[in-house]
Design a protein around this nucleic acid. Sequence first.
DNA 1: CTAGCGAA
DNA 2: TTCGCTAGC
Length: 347
Amino acid sequence: MGVDLREFVKPVAVEIDPRTLIKKVVAIDAYNALYQFLATIRQPNGEPFTAPDGRITSHLIGLFYRTINLVEMGIKPVYVFDGKPPELKVKTLEKRRMIREEAKRKRLSAMKRGNVEEAVKYAKQGAILTRELKEMAIKLLDLMALPRVQAPSEGEAQAAYMAKKGDAYASVSQDYDSLLFGTPRLIRNLSVTHKRKLPGKNERVEVPPELIELQKLLKYRRITHEQLIDIAILLGTDYNEKPIKGIGPKRAIELIRMYGSADRVPGVPERFKEIYPEVKRLFLEPEVTDDYKLDRDRQPDIEGIVKYLVDELGFNEKRVRKALERYMKGREKRKQQTIDDFLGGLI
DNA sequence: CTAGCGAA
DNA sequence: TTCGCTAGC
């Protein structure tokens, strides 16, 4: 979820051709990606896809085919997984659970009325990414020999850190929080074909990948990174509720310019002033780690993947093998590129 | 979300 | 080739 900075960021967001990411490492917010797959890859009745034993597979369908497309194109994905959420986020997580329960009630009621479309809508809202689903994704990534990073706390913070260090070119997430964590580049809507279903409607629209550069945003808005965080805090983040009603991005900038920081804005509740320093610290100095390696040396376990996806989870073998062929070709091509670059460097 | 297929 | 639709598990 996170902060809604869409309007704030829009003027500097630029559409990019995914080919501009060739040979670049992109740090993908795994939670965000898996959640997205889980919510969108559904059967016509709104139910997720499942293995014969009942385990959900929608997230793996997305992960498998999307990742292979990226690799085939020459992009180097690394998935970053969440660790332990900060204390202040626990309330947000509880609120999300309430929303899911509410969605479940609405789905059942829509079903009783025979309103399939509405039932499907609420089924998607009720999507929940369990530990088991996450473990399945990790198992698949390891079999595919794709690098992954376990963040100590927030995955987006870890991805931003890796991008800041230069280990990744950009963070990939639908959420804007990465910018608050200081990622120099945020990529949204990363996919190879850009067709996406419009929520509610049955039409599809082109949603091309877009790049948001932090420095460009700060320059355009004539603010500092710290002020950006304060603006987000006024709008409400995963760690704090919106302190004052009726404040959008426009007013938030003015208020931060006028008063310097969010806790000094007149009218904010005492409770807000109390948690403010900690909220700000969570964005400025999030818990991250250097304990990761993005090695490219491991080889994918093709038969292991087939055993897992086909024998255990019921994927279609022909499809899986065809995709794996594309995957291996993509990896080979990339290896050759790397060798070429190396030789080029010697000349 | 993506692949694949038949229609335009 | 591109478009539109369906199936995927």
